[in-house]
Nucleic acid binder design. Sequence first.
DNA 1: GTGAAAGCGCTAACAA
DNA 2: TTGTTAGCGCTTTCAC
Lengths: 340, 340
Amino acid sequence: MNQQRPTKKTTIYDLAELAGTSASAVSAVLNGNWKKRRISSQLAEKITRIAEEQGYAINMQASLLRRDKSKIIGMIVPKYDNRYFGSIVETFEIMARERGLFPIITCTLRDPELEVEAARTMLSYQVDWLISTGATNPDRITDICVAAGAKSLNLDLPGSRAPSIISDNFGGARELTRRTLLNCGDRFGDLSPLLFIGGRASDHNTSERLRGFKAAHEELGVIVDESHILACGYAPEKAVNALQALADREGALPRGMFVNSTISLEGVMRWIKGSHHFSDDAPVIGCFDWDPFVALLADNIEMVRQDVSGMLQSVFRIIDDGGTALPLIEVPPIFDSHAQ
Amino acid sequence: MNQQRPTKKTTIYDLAELAGTSASAVSAVLNGNWKKRRISSQLAEKITRIAEEQGYAINMQASLLRRDKSKIIGMIVPKYDNRYFGSIVETFEIMARERGLFPIITCTLRDPELEVEAARTMLSYQVDWLISTGATNPDRITDICVAAGAKSLNLDLPGSRAPSIISDNFGGARELTRRTLLNCGDRFGDLSPLLFIGGRASDHNTSERLRGFKAAHEELGVIVDESHILACGYAPEKAVNALQALADREGALPRGMFVNSTISLEGVMRWIKGSHHFSDDAPVIGCFDWDPFVALLADNIEMVRQDVSGMLQSVFRIIDDGGTALPLIEVPPIFDSHAQ
DNA sequence: GTGAAAGCGCTAACAA
DNA sequence: TTGTTAGCGCTTTCAC
């Protein structure tokens, strides 16, 4: 036996009895509203001491049931398997706690059904706010939140019915493409069109990045090859399969690539290593996302880092303000200055 | 204005009124205990339909206040910045949901004070179980849980007062060291002692890995150099500083290294890249942790992958059983078969 | 300065 | 078969 039996938890009534006072006094003291109740500081002190001694912990369920705002803030996130979302979650928790909010986070594995189920569950727990990060259908979630009287907000992937904070995908992709094309030119002596791989053509981010990809080509006078745009999804295997299919079809592959995320990059690198298409000379890659090991190990890969901290500052600015407007905020991603 | 005002949430009383029945009937139906209440299936159906129509969502705060078990399961985790913890969190969520439990997770940034604060907060939310992952002081948390009538359990780093599930650090480190020594021998022609870097000498995992490190050296007849054991902490900068100090002191560095985590590895690789100590020939490294990009990009680095899924299966076996015993379970980590 | 009491939304024992 | 009722622990108004 390692753990005792639930020795009936201490309540404010127990505390009141021990202090020879009432539950309402205890409640007021423990919540710090005893100035306006003008409770004597000795009573306050006594109550505080006894609470301490008894290891009292408030029952949030009871407290929340009575109050109108829960101060619980929920976030749904697709995966924990890359630095981008990891950093979003970590920063989110820190910033929520700074504001006295209780963050709850859940990952939905990019499954649309799980997304709405997770949203409903969080609403059952009375979240005041729900942040949908990278959700496949943010508007659906906003609708569910509105129906439940909660506020919602989109991060990373925008929606039309709640404030949205995303990266400047167009600008970032244009610059990344420009750099990658030029890197390619330096390396191979001529400017040829890049391969685009990863992401879903239907999602806003991918289509914006595609737009930036094309703009950069155009600006440098390079004709995009539409058959080399492979928005095959996010999972690494999808990238592997897409590259294999292209190689089967065309024999050779472009020597420059725009990769839409580190997730896809994992697949791209796996395929490159497994095949022998680039055994003599590694392709030049630009990746719209950042990972420290790639940055350290692969000198043929340039990465853009999304500005997680900047995005979350925007998120909490809206939350702090109560979120009455409906903006689409685009935060520029960060390029290493040394490159280019 | 994007979001309506909190249109007073629907309760079971509203539902009861609409269905022309009582709140308890609604409650029973919505909880699926209407067989034992022998409610007519037509009434059940009607209630279900109305609940659906109204977009009813149960108020968990109220429900939990009344029930004895919350079915909330908490986990604290140090960081989200590596694949190991990311995968723990993701798997934990999946396995918790499979059991109808509601997982809440919070990261504590390796800050002992935050750890206990986070534990207390979770207890306020009435968690039935609290999993401490990589906590600096698991026993302290167990004590707090016991006092609050919750069960606790340690993952990754063991404690003495609750069941603990950890990697087989000794066995894993011994095998990793053996492989790294042999790789080193293959590469450089002779067996010389490795550098050990990363982790805290005071923590159980590091001391066990150190024991395995020494055992493997001994088995191969190599004398460990105690001045080359740098348990400098986990943050990348700490590894950078430790290596720099060693290089300043001794001029040369060992050509083989045992690195205690991917976090430390990040620092090691940063230092290697920045200095010119290995500009001609990369050192041979064994890393007690796994990252896909390192595995793909660095052929001089061998990695062990901790068996996250196996560990969490053990965790939930204990939870499913009610957790009456107090075991220390060591789960063997996974080596790539191709190497060695 | 302080206490009594109502009620947040739900569950479950007890009546009917 | 179904409804009534008594709380779960807390916050807050109101009365003293």
